[in-house]
């Protein structure tokens, strides 16, 4: 009798679970830990959606796209969150994504009207230095200086690819010259952002490729104002991080609801001090205290996403040639 009651309990319990719809969101690794945006986003969305939000972390943005391509149309993912502007074209060409119905006023330095990909945050790439260091104001001056920098490899890292595009967007056909100038400044090239930033903090280089928002972390979380980003007068390349709905989703309405939720204050106000990026739509309370100390680049650079794949090959060749001499 007891066994029967237990069995009945199990059946009822599983029945109850099955009634709660589940929304599966694939995202990158640093989104999900306790200190990332994930747990707060999950709690906030579950309050309103009557669903279970399941965040699945897959490496970084590039791994995320690779995994979706591996899974193809059978993927369990309903939404992918964490691709960036340099990956959008490759993602679009897979045909795995469906148009969104989000209508929002984005606070981006560039106009945004992509029918498929919805921005959730953005930032400027920048070199980060110790606040006291006298730093050059552009790539040419950096190349002429004796300062040592550490950067990420564009073949394994999204910021690394961002730098490649930055130089390409600012200098076009003169990019190889710029790289030749930088060659003797580059201490080393790392696999990813974490390694490069770690080397910089350990004093291996004077500057590291990161974001204009990086000093905000040190200022707000560590009460340390010793780091600063370096303004470059040719402008700063942007990274816009986006989310999209999978065409094969079995919860298309929930997926749409999630994307709409993503541009509301409840989501956007979590971003600045967990992901350390700018919110795509400014929340009502504005930015947290400390963000006003960050540099504000005068020019925002961004190559049209459809030109990225072809330019990437060319820029990568130039980069390799200049640095392999």
């Amino acid at each position: 009798m007891k066994a029967f009651a237990f069995a009945a309990g199990v059946v009822l319990a599983t029945g109850a679970v099955a009634e709660t719809p589940q929304l599966t969101v694939y995202t990158y690794d640093s989104f999900v830990p306790d200190w990332g945006p994930g747990p707060q986003v999950e709690a906030a969305f579950e309050e309103t959606c009557g669903c279970d939000l399941n965040l699945v972390a897959v490496g970084d943005g590039a791994s995320l796209l690779a995994r979706l391509r591996l899974e193809g149309e059978r993927s369990d993912a309903d939404v992918v969150l964490g691709l960036d502007t340099n990956l959008i074209q490759s993602a679009r060409e897979t045909g795995l994504f469906a148009p969104h119905d989000v209508d929002a006023e984005f606070d981006l330095p560039v106009a945004w009207d992509d029918p498929v990909f919805v921005p959730f945050d953005w930032g400027y790439f920048a070199f980060v230095k110790d606040a006291g260091l006298e730093a050059p104001g552009n790539f040419r001056a950096l190349g002429d200086s004796d300062l040592k920098i550490v950067i990420q490899d564009p073949r394994s890292s999204t910021p690394g690819l961002g730098l490649l595009m930055w130089v390409k967007a600012a200098y076009g056909d003169e990019a190889p010259e710029i790289w030749e100038g930088l060659a003797d400044n580059i201490v080393t090239v790392t696999k990813g952002w974490s390694e490069a930033y770690g080397l910089f903090l350990d004093g291996e280089a004077d500057m590291v490729l990161s974001y204009t928002t990086s000093p905000a972390y040190h200022l707000i979380a560590e009460e340390d104002d010793s780091k600063a980003a370096v303004p470059f007068d040719e402008g700063h390349y942007m990274q816009v991080e986006v989310a999209a709905k999978l065409a094969g989703s079995d919860q298309p309405e929930l997926a749409d609801a999630f994307l709409r939720f993503m541009v509301t204050d409840a989501f956007q106000s979590i971003i600045p001090t967990t992901n350390w990026m700018y919110p795509a739509v400014m929340p009502e309370g504005g930015l947290p205290e400390g963000f006003e100390t960050l540099i504000a680049p005068e020019r925002a650079l961004l190559l049209p996403s459809e030109e990225v794949p072809a330019l990437r090959e060319e820029a990568l060749d130039e980069w390799q040639r200049a640095l392999s001499q």
């Binding site: 080393t188 790392t190 696999k191 080397l199 980069w319 390799q320 640095l323 392999s324």
Partner: peptide, 13 residues
Amino acid sequence: SFAVVLTLGGGPR
């Protein structure tokens, strides 16, 4: 080996 080589190798060489 890959991360060691890249980090200490000093670049795309």
